[in-house]
Write a protein that binds this DNA or RNA. Structure first.
Lengths: 337, 337
DNA sequence: TTGAAAGCGCTAACAT
DNA sequence: ATGTTAGCGCTTTCAA
């Protein structure tokens, strides 16, 4: 495909002064026509807006921000942008931000605290607030960030910072109730990354719930929350003679399922498998995965909403919100052997 | 006095002047220490950087951009941020941008040309370039955007604009060769959105390839490229007595698979099903899906790379790049009935 | 090598 | 109702 017209430099964008000159008014009048339309003569305004449209003028958000200190932009940082789990959060946040007339920028921290911190530093002055999903940052760092920017955490909590978290206490209880009622007397947890806050909550909840049923619980791992860790985790579970395993998340659970099939171990007949997240994929794998669903879209939306109050209404109260979870029973769990 | 109003005002960020004052130098020296370190005395620079670190100073990207006209930021716009297909593109782009020291912001166009245009307008002045993945914008609009911003398209092509596209000619040929060799004499294509450029390329390629084999081809649809359209598409295929169907993408294909199972139609014994994208999920569904894999990560990375040349090196030639595709044969295709 | 000064595009006093 | 002026934080001449 041959180049149409070798463009050397991008066309220069029209500025407020261009519009002002062309329309024969002062720059401030143009400014007002856009940001304070009531305070300018209807006739003048129409003329100005007409000229602006003609010139393809768009207010430069950067110049605007420089003056006001507000960018009308939020950043959402997630540990793994390719993980379908976060797709829900992203989607919910994106939708809420758009509805509120705000721009959302997305950052991928690659499960690394260092990358996350770097992104926060870099984006900090350019955004009005952060949604940090499953943040890997230590508590004190989180509070430091919250001094300069509005911050809302998703599935992470620390004193003095707003957050939206899933109700893991109830969720883990649901999982264990389910397994207990199927006759399982012991539980093997295949754990995720040690820094994972949600991982810790899940483990704590499972322990508490198991105790209520006098079930024995153990935890293996840590395993990385990926398909690739499935074989190691599955093999360990088999070696331990587990009848029921609960995996850190669905990604790991699906990896486990796949490995068990390779090894000819029937699920759920010989072993029950459950996960967390109900991500896309949990319903289409075989056997379909029993898993704890979170309202990820709601989490993203609520986080943006809280952030808006924090950033623009100067609300001090760090809102925290607990979202319900629900167990989706599918085919991967069944009666104990 | 009203009761103490809980009010959190974010701590003010240190500016270049703060650093200058504290360090006892001029603002310009601080500026140089950051952006032109060679042109300042080593000793002075160390001192300045020390003070800056102490004050937690970070150059304000917005003020910087205002002056230079460069934001060092690219925007990546995708039609559906929750579609695992784009996760690869996002990941590749994100990685390449980070490696090049650039910030990437992500936008979701929700499959809507209007939303896409709005995002382009809004983000335009704030970024140095756009990667538009599977853009829904009409050709002339695309060229207009390219006048003001560097633009690289992914899986879309139009005269005068850089792009990275998958080799659908070869890819569709691979699909049809595969089906023909299994004895299929006709092909039913379950099409996607009419505005989809890749959909059109796929359909064109399938037609050409089918002709080479003297196979009969028909196309049904359009169907939305989602799980939810699976039942409608599957039922139509069954009613038409198809032995082999090729779906617009994996999402649709998995929906079709699920519906066929519901209806007790064996895949691939009674009907073969193939998709496009090899997204996450294609390998874990049952039966595992035969699909055309694209190098989505590479696509994202290449797009960013081209964009960098366009935006910062003032390269005139709109580079275009064709990436290979490869057929991944799994369990959903088999011998014709 | 460093400092002073002039903007970048825009908004918000303050004048008129 | 509109124009004038003074910055926002930073970079970049231009002098010193």
């Amino acid at each position: 495909m041959p180049p149409e017209q070798p463009r050397v430099s991008p066309r220069k964008r029209a500025t407020i002064t261009d519009v002002a000159r062309t329309a024969g008014v002062a720059a401030s009048t143009v400014s007002r026509s856009f940001s304070n339309p009531d305070r300018v003569n209807v006739h003048t305004r129409d003329h100005v807006l007409g000229v602006a449209a003609e010139l393809g003028y768009t207010p430069n958000p950067m110049a605007r921000a420089l003056e006001s200190g507000r960018t009308n932009t939020f950043a959402l940082l997630v540990p793994d942008i390719t993980n379908p789990y976060f797709a829900g959060v992203i989607n919910g946040a994106e939708q809420a931000a758009t509805a509120a007339g705000r721009t959302l920028v997305l950052g991928n921290t690659r499960e690394s605290a260092a990358t996350e911190e770097q992104l926060v530093r870099r984006l900090g002055p350019a955004v009005d607030g952060f949604v940090l999903a499953a943040s890997r940052l230590p508590d004190d760092e989180l509070r430091r960030v919250a001094e300069f920017n509005a911050v809302t955490l998703v599935n992470r909590a620390t004193r003095g910072v707003s957050c939206v978290v899933a109700d893991y206490a109830s969720g883990t209880r649901q999982i264990v109730d389910h397994l207990a009622s199927l006759g399982h007397r012991s539980l093997l947890v295949l754990g995720g990354p040690p820094e994972s806050w949600s991982g810790a909550r899940r483990w704590a909840g499972l322990q508490d719930a198991a105790e209520l049923h006098n079930m024995q619980v153990r935890r293996f791992g840590p395993y990385s929350p990926t398909l690739g860790s499935g074989p190691a985790a599955a093999d360990a579970a088999v070696a331990a003679g587990a009848t029921a395993v609960v995996c850190h998340n669905d990604m790991l659970a699906i990896g486990v399922l796949r490995r068990l099939r390779e090894r000819g171990i029937a699920v759920p007949e010989q072993m029950s498998v459950a996960g967390f997240d109900d991500m896309f994929g949990a319903s289409i794998c075989t056997p379909a995965l029993t898993t704890l669903a979170e309202r990820t879209e709601d989490a993203g939306a609520h986080a943006i909403e809280i952030l808006g109050r924090l950033a623009y209404e100067r609300v001090a109260e760090p809102g925290s919100r607990v979202l319900p979870t629900q167990l989706v029973v599918r085919e991967s769990t069944g009666h104990a052997v």
